[in-house]
Design a protein around this nucleic acid. Structure first.
Length: 438
RNA sequence: GGGCUCGUAGUGAAGAGGCCUAUCACGCCUCCCUGUCACGGAGGAGAUCGCCGGUUCGAAUCCGGUCGGGCCCGCCA
């Protein structure tokens, strides 16, 4: 008999069906035993009355892989409105070791117990609540791809092994590459800019590696970044509008299509700005507002403090009804060599997109003039002939239009969409400063 | 890298000098139970209180060290 899935049981009332899955829960009431069998669609309740069938489950722990043949009966008292009767069990893979954690109840996500969460990740991904997180993650990235495809972006894949240090900023992992020193990419930035020279619009969803010794709720050493780059932009606004539209598209869609799931995970209600225009504040404005509101002077800072990120997000939500807000016009001192700067205004054409209090994306406009790039790199003390730079610079030498894009944290997007407290909770197998397993 | 915190059965928690021969809940084992869905009931097993040293008549509890977590800051997605 062919296997049917849990969600199809209801439509087979009266007939005998064959299901396969994991033993998820047993409830033994003496002459009557209920078991739940889990498959990729969910759970099926099976009722056992035959003592010999119940006896097959003796010593079988949660996780035992079962095949069940039974007659589907309409039953309003059963979850899903139907259940299997007169069941014949076959143990396909017996499990006799008691699992170290319980997987049929919501898994605790308290900060002090996150270590246990990840230590038993292999098992807790079988928990239905836990599974919702990573399904939502898959759906969010699908909607992002959908939007980008609609806007003629080409998905690319770029190498993660690099020759030597490149962008500067975050610390890089160094490793031995057949006797040469290599680094792990901290972002695909150079490659996506190079690819603007081919397709104008490109994106990549891939891993980036940061050797920052950061032990916070928002850092991973291996993170999933969405990197976007688009050429022939009229200016910084066009980049911000595109990133803003994409983010809103993905969020709106996930709330529309999976609102129930989000609700069951206690996700916050989604608040997007009327008319779709994400509010913008300059860094100077935010420093000013924060200093006035709190009495802590941040006006000398070149970046926002984490508390300022929370502050301006709260302001945008309360006053402007938006979960999203752009922090724009970073001071010129914060500029990196590849940023486009406005020397007259003394600003960098760089904005951060904040979502529910957290930096979600960095969205700069790039310097695209070859001579200026060489000047800015030299000024930054970089060797333009280094093999980590020379191929990158070829793209500029042979013509790149004005372009910009973003580096966008997928892990953080999932975290904040669901309302989790730590980016690691949104990551299946997180890598941080003290965790390299599972 | 700096600061602050926390380590007690498999899991989550209580105990804060003697009441501890360490308590509770879930899970596990045995038995009872025909509509459970956090099933219920009776009984049982399971912990050198992270580790090392010290103070004390007496340490899970106080002190020092050490190892392992967590949170915040810096930095960043």
């Amino acid at each position: 008999m062919d296997r049917i899935l849990s969600s199809d049981v209801k439509s087979h009332v009266g007939s005998t069906v064959h299901i396969e899955g994991w033993l998820h829960k047993k409830r033994m009431l003496g002459g009557l035993t209920f078991i739940n069998v889990r498959d990729r669609r969910g759970l099926v309740q099976v009722v056992l009355q035959d003592k010999d069938e119940v006896e097959k489950l003796r010593g079988m722990q949660i996780g035992t892989v079962l095949a069940v043949d039974g007659t589907v009966k309409d039953e309003p008292r059963a979850p899903g409105g139907a259940e299997l009767h007169d069941a014949k069990l076959e143990v396909l893979v017996p499990v006799t070791d008691e699992p170290p954690i319980e997987i049929d109840k919501p898994i605790q996500h308290k900060a002090e117990n996150l270590d246990t969460l990840f230590e038993y990740r292999v098992l807790n991904v079988r928990n239905l609540q836990e599974q919702k997180i990573f399904k939502l993650r898959s759906q969010l990235t699908r909607y992002i791809r959908e939007f980008l495809d609609q806007h003629e972006f080409v998905e690319i894949d770029t190498p993660k092994f690099l020759a030597g240090a490149t962008e500067g900023g975050a610390e890089v992992f160094k490793l031995d590459y057949f006797g040469k020193e290599a680094t792990l990419a901290q972002s695909p930035q150079f490659y996506k800019q190079i690819m603007v020279g081919a397709y104008e619009r490109v994106y990549e969803i891939g891993h980036s590696y940061r050797a920052e010794p950061s032990a916070t709720t928002r850092h991973l050493t291996e993170l999933t970044m969405l990197d976007i780059e688009m050429g022939f932009v009229s200016g910084h606004d066009e980049v911000l509008d595109m990133v803003g539209d994409m983010t809103q598209y993905a969020l709106k869609k996930v709330y529309e299509e999976h609102g129930d799931t989000l609700k069951s995970l206690n996700a916050p209600e989604l608040k997007l700005p009327e008319g779709g225009k994400i509010p913008r504040f300059t860094i100077a404005q935010i420093h000013d507002m924060y200093t006035k509101a709190t009495g802590t002077d941040t006006t000398k800072e070149k970046d926002l403090t984490p508390d300022e990120e929370r502050f301006i997000s709260e302001h945008a939500l309360k006053e402007l009804g938006s979960d999203l807000v752009f922090a724009t016009e970073f001071p010129i001192e914060a500029a990196k060599f590849y940023h486009k700067v406005d020397t007259e205004k003394g600003i960098t054409m760089w904005a951060d997109l904040l979502f529910r209090g957290l930096e979600l994306a960095t969205c700069p406009l790039r310097e695209n003039n070859y001579q200026k790039m060489v000047e800015q790199m030299t000024k930054a003390g970089l060797d333009v002939n280094h093999e980590g730079f020379k191929y990158y610079l070829q793209a500029f030498k042979y013509g790149l239009p004005q372009h910009g894009g973003c580096g966008f944290g997928i892990d953080r997007l999932v975290e904040k969409t669901i309302g989790l407290a730590n980016v690691k909770e949104a990551t299946l197998f997180p890598r941080d400063i003290n965790r390299l397993t599972p």
